[in-house]
């Protein structure tokens, strides 16, 4: 049985590329966090019921939400993401606090 995931994880997160380092994990901040302006911030939303939503900049630049995908646990601090129309990916949960999410993609 894997250790429980932090409750802070389950919310809508917005990508903060300006805080990322080359080769490092992707950095996200909670929706509503005062991020500087950027063209096309993507985002991710994990819900406790296993729903995965992805956010991207839409055709007229307003953020758009994907159709619901799924996520499951995949061992300690690992999540398996099943985005709609995409390949399943196992990501490492590096940090999940009230104001910071870090996910390492393979």
């Amino acid at each position: 049985m894997a250790e429980p995931l932090p409750p802070a994880l389950f919310r809508r997160w917005v990508r903060a590329r300006e805080e990322e380092e080359a080769g490092g994990p992707r950095v996200y901040r909670p929706s509503g966090y005062p991020l500087p302006p950027a063209r096309g911030r993507d985002g991710i939303e994990l819900r406790a019921d296993g729903t995965l939503l992805e956010w991207t900049a839409g055709p007229v630049d307003a953020p758009v939400r994907s159709a619901p995908g799924r996520w499951t646990g995949a061992g300690p601090a690992r999540l398996r993401l099943f985005p709609v129309g995409g390949e399943a990916t196992v990501v490492e949960l590096v940090a999940a606090t009230d104001d910071l999410l870090q996910l390492r993609w393979p």
């Binding site: 917005v14 509503g32 500087p36 302006p37 950027a38 911030r41 307003a62 953020p63």
Partner: peptide, 11 residues
């Protein structure tokens, strides 16, 4: 605008 959004339009 919230969330770092720079702008948006309508076709």
């Amino acid at each position: 605008l919230a969330g770092g959004l720079l702008g948006y339009a309508q076709f």
